[in-house]
């Protein structure tokens, strides 16, 4: 199974990412121990030069991880034809115990990478690189996460066996299933819709407010918190009712089948703005702890306001698209 082009590409991306981060690790430790912007010593000059390299490498790795998430989901969806019982990505991910952990880990790395990129962006805007230590410490922290993704992907792809009969989304996302996914599917449409639009409206309002006022601190954290909440609510809403409208079927709750070409890839229209908005929201929160650093006093409000504006736009687009899908559908879930 490992000789699938997309699998090779994914593993290649993960291996190179881990290798680059590993190469950066000793340097990160050096930075944490010896960085002193005021010093003019030979070592400090060396370190300053090398930060350019490793910042670029790290940016490259993070950007790769953002793309790898798309490729991973895309690939899982495409491979479903190869397994008995699989209709969509759920079946493929369920072939062995590593599929969903790999996806969740990849998603976690996606958001961590986005936050890291936000912090990095802020740091490079200041002349004295005030966050360099924190940045590289975070990089060291990300290394195990990226390595875990690689390990999970390896376990997952190596253990893919075509003769395993897997279960489909119908059994994972149905009203009768025990567990979180079943509960999400069993939510009745009206409360789910209310929660969905309320959470997204709240995230939008918070982000828009923050983007307007540029006041740091609590508002920035609030953007991150409401973004994450809206993310959860949006996924729940997709499972609880948006997917039903897209399939025009009252009991098909799968959040992965909407990615399929049969449904015109409508899922990507939903997920891309949603993930982008959440990543921006999380980024706005991630830079807040440093708002009192002297050289960043002017930078952070600007950057975080811009991120918040992007997040607000993303949530708005997401809500509009979801509403269009619901409005266009021939399914009637709510009696009028």
């Amino acid at each position: 199974m490992i000789f699938q082009p997309a699998i090779i590409a994914l593993l290649l991306a993960s291996v190179i990412s881990v290798a680059m981060l590993l190469a950066a690790a000793p340097f990160a430790i050096q930075i944490i121990r010896h960085w002193d912007i005021a010093s003019g010593s030979e070592r400090q000059l060396q370190l300053e030069r090398r930060t350019y390299l490793f910042s670029t490498l790290a940016m490259f790795v993070m950007a790769t991880q953002l793309m790898a998430l798309m490729l991973f989901v895309f690939n899982a969806d495409k491979m479903s034809v190869m397994f008995v019982g699989a209709m969509c990505a759920v079946g493929t991910l369920n072939v062995n115990a590593w599929g969903f952990p790999a996806l969740i880990a990849q998603m976690a790395v996606f958001f961590l990478a986005a936050s890291w990129l936000a912090v990095n962006h802020v740091d490079t805007r200041a002349p004295d690189y005030p966050l360099v230590r924190i940045k590289y410490a975070a990089l060291l922290g990300l290394l195990p996460a990226v390595a875990a993704v690689l390990w999970l992907q390896l376990e997952y792809f190596m253990n893919l066996r075509a003769d395993v009969i897997t279960s489909c989304c119908g059994s994972l996302f149905s009203e009768d299933t025990k567990g979180l996914t079943g509960d999400m599917a069993a939510l009745s449409p009206v409360p789910a819709m209310v929660a969905f639009y309320a959470a997204i409206a709240l995230a939008f309002a918070t982000a828009a407010f923050h983007a307007q006022t540029k006041r740091g601190g609590a508002a920035g954290y609030a953007v991150a918190a409401t973004s994450v909440a809206a993310f959860v609510a949006a996924l729940t809403g997709i499972i609880a009712f948006v997917s039903l409208y897209i399939y025009e079927h009252p009991h098909h709750h799968c959040p992965f089948c909407i990615l399929k070409p049969e449904y015109d890839w409508q899922g990507y229209w939903l997920y891309v703005p949603l993930f982008a908005a959440t990543a921006c929201g999380a980024g706005a929160g991630a830079v807040q702890p440093f708002r009192n650093v002297e050289s960043l006093r002017n930078v952070i409000p600007q950057v975080s306001a811009r991120l918040a504006a992007l997040a607000a736009a993303g949530f708005l687009i997401f809500a509009v698209i979801a509403t269009v899908f619901v409005a266009r559908s021939n399914l009637m879930l709510i009696e009028t």
Binding site: P5, A6, I8, A9, L10, L12, A13, I16, M20, L53, T56, L57, F60, T64, M67, M70, L71, F74, N75, K78, P261, W265
Partner: peptide, 21 residues
């Protein structure tokens, strides 16, 4: 399909960019 294009992109652009960094 998009997966092909994305995979191709990963196979060609990604190693090149990694190599020139």
């Amino acid at each position: 399909d998009g997966l092909q294009v994305a995979t191709l992109f990963f196979f060609t652009v990604f190693p090149y960019m990694a190599a020139v960094l």
